[in-house]
Design a protein around this nucleic acid. Structure first.
Lengths: 129, 129
DNA sequence: GCCATTAGTGTCAGGAATGATACCATGCCG
DNA sequence: CGGCATGGTATCATTCCTGACACTAATGGC
């Protein structure tokens, strides 16, 4: 998602909606959080298994941003080979209802939206035909 | 937000979380939906007033994408000057709890995340100093 | 000595998202 | 006749996001 949006919180009503979205609107952040709700402690490599299409660089990026926003904590064990654990912070845990709402809606309606889009595409295809 | 992400729904668990986010992860979509929950019918110009920093092109884009996904309906009155009304579809209305969850969280915690980020920045500033 | 392991980092390149700006139609009002 | 109102388009430039790929460190095992 997005991209850096406005950073101040003193804009029009509904602004906090955007502010919230900025925190986990990144391409993989919502999934990262989702997996951390399922499994409270995850290592870097475990994320890579769960998110099959993410590159190392992207995964690092997203995790660091989540950490910078105080949603995820990163614990490094100074051993070789490296061992790093990620878990939710207390603040991160408060996001659970939000992520849950996203999932609930998606499970119910995502297919509707897909179908909707296909229908419109078919219609315009017929018009142009 | 985002950007086009994966389009299939048959990926790992939690995928519908992402799918949902794709629908309103665009830079202004969540705000557009939010305003439509507050005011059931809005015209193009009214959006421009409510979203002060959006350009015409972006607004058109976002509205068209929401329409393509079946979340928003667009009604054109063939008069001069043009008159166009936007409102939520039935599918769009089902998103209310999701947007509401985003807002509720944002109202409570957005400031925490901001503070968190500032704290870390200050810390690293001290370290490098 | 050589390789595997884990969690990264660095660099480069391509493409997508967004912004800025200018332009359009058309009917009414003065 | 000229300008205004509304809801857009078209074009170009830029900036940002993302992916591909190569590379690193330190230790244990063969």
């Amino acid at each position: 998602m997005p991209r850096t949006r406005h950073t101040t919180l003193n804009c029009s009503p509904g602004c906090t909606v955007e502010a919230t979205l900025e925190l986990f609107g990144g391409k993989w952040k919502a999934l990262i959080l989702y997996h951390l709700f399922e499994e409270p402690v995850l290592r870097f490599g475990e994320f890579r298994h769960r998110l099959p299409n993410v590159t190392q660089r992207m995964l690092t990026n997203q995790l660091r941003e989540l950490e910078a926003d105080g949603l995820v904590s990163r614990t490094v064990f100074p051993v070789v080979p490296p061992h790093v654990e990620y878990r939710l912070t207390d603040l991160g845990k408060t996001l659970k209802p939000v992520i849950q709402a996203l999932k609930t809606w998606g499970d119910q309606y995502a297919h509707s939206a897909e179908r909707e889009k296909r229908l419109k595409q078919d219609q315009s295809a017929q018009i142009t035909a």
